[in-house]
Amino acid sequence: MNMNVETPKEPVDAMTFQLPEELQVKVKTRDVNVHYGEKQALFDINLDVPANHVVSLIGPSGCGKSTYLRCLNRMNDIIDIARVSGKIELDGLDIYDKNIDVVELRARVGMVFQKPNPFPKSIFDNVAYGPRIHGLADNKTELEEIVVTSLQKAGLFDEVKDRLKDSGTGLSGGQQQRLCIARAIATRPEVILMDEPASALDPIATAVIEELIDELRQNFTIIIVTHSMQQAARISQYTAFFHLGYLVEVGDTEQIFTNPVDRRTQDYITGRFG
């Protein structure tokens, strides 16, 4: 990694970028700092995510973009040494408030992981798991309906409709990842977090997933971490560039990739480092 980029002495104020007035802010982040033990992983992050849009988080490895993503559904709670400070609001609700039920929060903010991680259960049970534990279906018919529509939305139904009883782990990598997306949308979340969802997939499977993300935008707010800048450019409306734990620049995806303000952003997107 070429490190001729100096660590910023002052965090860049990403707030200089204003979302258009008419957009509803879904996730609002103010002055978020994250420590892993002694090490600080995120510095004063400020970011607004608009509803029903796709926001890409890009940046070199270890820049904190996954850490930020995992703050949004409090996944960092699982890690003993992680400490989060600052304010994150979901529709104006402080998700780090002590009265917040983490289980409920995670039902509202779904997550798709880098490596497909279907449960060791049947395809049907994988998708039905979320609705079951949250009591979203009153009877079997309703549950089946949720499973079928989720699989359809994830573009997987036609491929698996004859073998819903088969194990979810027997699918191909791309199918597994779409199964995980179906599983995430079956709980009817409002926001879906995606942590490099296509990095373990071949180009064809990736294209399918990208198309899917674009369709999902109708019903969900999507925040996606990606290492592929082409992918960010293809699927997202807004892009945020992270570097060494700082949020360096946020903007229209087109503007970030054609006319970045910060020199570090420019270096990264032109492939000079990272």
Partner: peptide
């Protein structure tokens, strides 16, 4: 694997 654990937590499982 941790990924399975996180998958379940991510769906809001206790």
């Amino acid at each position: 694997p941790r990924s399975l654990r996180e998958g379940a937590y991510g769906l809001g499982a206790t």
